[in-house]
Simulated scan of single mutants.
Amino acid sequence: MKKRVIISMALATVLATGLYAKGNCDRGCDYNKSSKMMKKSHKGGFMSFVYNLDLDDKQKEQIQTIKKEMMKKRFAKKDSAFTATDFDKEKYIQLMKQKRENMIESKAEMIDKIYKVLNKDQKKQLKEMMDKRKERFSSMMKKRMNFDKNCNGRG
């Protein structure tokens, strides 16, 4: 008798756990979709502002061409600090510093080329969007700073 009760309790627990997990998955299993959307929207970066502008088809095509060109340059074959038997620490450090500098220069070049594709109104709209983001960020930081000052004994 006790054995049947224990088995039925264990079975009920397993089933309940499975149903609970299934219910949570129905509500929150959009993780992959949302992460893909976030990557696609370039949340918060320069390109997100550009994509929010009213671009004509020619501008969209030019921007895509610029991006492809920059990607080819970014992932071009580079020298390596590794050989079959050795690792050159100094060369590795030098390559990583160059990579960082090149990335900054490449991004600035891409922004410059894309900016030249935009018309006057789009440039004005882009600047307004960037200013709004800056204001939102500074007001958010201001709220955080005020919150920290007034927290029970901290600050």
Rank of each mutant, 00 (worst) to 15 (best):
N24C: 04
K68Q: 15
S138R: 15
M130C: 01
N32I: 09
Q125G: 00
S106M: 13
A84R: 06
K113T: 01
A108P: 00
T85S: 12
E135V: 10
K132H: 06
Q98L: 05
L95Y: 11
N152K: 11
T65W: 10
D56K: 14
Y51T: 03
S34W: 15
Q59S: 11
F147L: 00
M71V: 07
R133N: 04
S34C: 12
R100Y: 04
Q122W: 13
T83W: 12
D86L: 04
M145S: 06
Y20I: 13
M110Q: 08
M9A: 11
K60N: 15
Q64M: 13
S80H: 15
E61G: 05
D54A: 15
M1G: 05
K143M: 09
K134N: 03
C29V: 04
S8K: 06
K78P: 13
K134W: 11
L118A: 12
T65Y: 11
T65V: 08
Q59T: 11
K142W: 05
K89P: 01
C151R: 08
M130L: 10
M38P: 03
N146S: 02
A21P: 03
C25E: 01
K43Q: 01
D30T: 10
K99Y: 05
G155C: 04
K3C: 02
L126G: 00
L53D: 03
K77H: 09
K123M: 15
I93V: 14
